[in-house]
Amino acid sequence: MDYALAIDDAPTTIPAGTGILLVHPSTAETDRIDTDFLKTDTDQFLVISTRTTAREVTQKLEHYEVEEDKATILDALSVERGYTRRQSDDVRYVSAPEDLDGIVAETRRFLDETEGKRRISLDSITELIYYTDEQRTREAAERLLAILDEQDAVGLFHLAGGVHDESVVDEFRGLFDAVVELGRAGTVTTTF
């Protein structure tokens, strides 16, 4: 099974199981790439948010006209910050961004419970490293990529390149099938 892809300078389709690393400057606007990825050729998608709350993710989806009825949001911030939260079919929570096992388990649960073309977006690896460390985050990313492959889904994983040593960025690049680089001026280059 192939998935259509709406990213500049990228192939028009990618095979099921593909994991894409989005490397961007820490101040760059990634919403357009993220939402174009989620709304193209998709039956269901999961947004794993370690940087913003479920409410903020919903606002982003509305702003970019992404079909919200296809969305499930995994909010990793609200519980830790003490925000009001209401578990529902389309909004789930883990206790904090450092709950990597919970993030992996909820991703597996989402993919087990859905069918068709499924996508996940993880925003962001940088936050997971901040809350845990590079090794634990790398292991979690490897587990998530294995689940994508086993479930014929695809994923986009955000990494703020400028805040990490180049060796760390290169290490994460090596885990993924493809890398999309967003430049400061909004230029996009890809390696597939």
Rank of each mutant, 00 (worst) to 15 (best):
D112R: 13
T27K: 10
T137G: 03
T30G: 08
T12A: 15
S49E: 15
I33L: 15
P25V: 06
I7K: 12
V79W: 05
D90G: 08
R118L: 04
E68C: 14
E181Q: 12
V57D: 08
R92P: 02
G161W: 00
V47W: 09
E113R: 13
I48D: 03
K39E: 15
V179G: 05
K60N: 10
T42N: 12
R32G: 11
Q59I: 11
S88R: 07
T132Y: 04
S167C: 01
L46Q: 04
A160H: 00
Q87Y: 12
G174F: 07
D177N: 14
Q59C: 13
Y83T: 13
Q151W: 00
L21E: 06
S49D: 10
L148H: 04
S124C: 05
L38N: 11
Y83M: 15
T52S: 07
T52N: 06
Q87K: 10
I48R: 03
E98H: 13
L122C: 08
K70A: 13
V94N: 03
R85A: 09
L5C: 13
K117N: 09
D8Y: 08
T189W: 07
E80F: 09
I120G: 07
K60P: 02
D177C: 08
A146L: 06
A160E: 00
D112P: 03
Y131W: 10
E67M: 10
A76V: 06
F45H: 14
T72H: 04
L111M: 12
T132S: 09
K60M: 15
L156S: 00
L21R: 07
R86E: 12
T53V: 08
G116M: 14
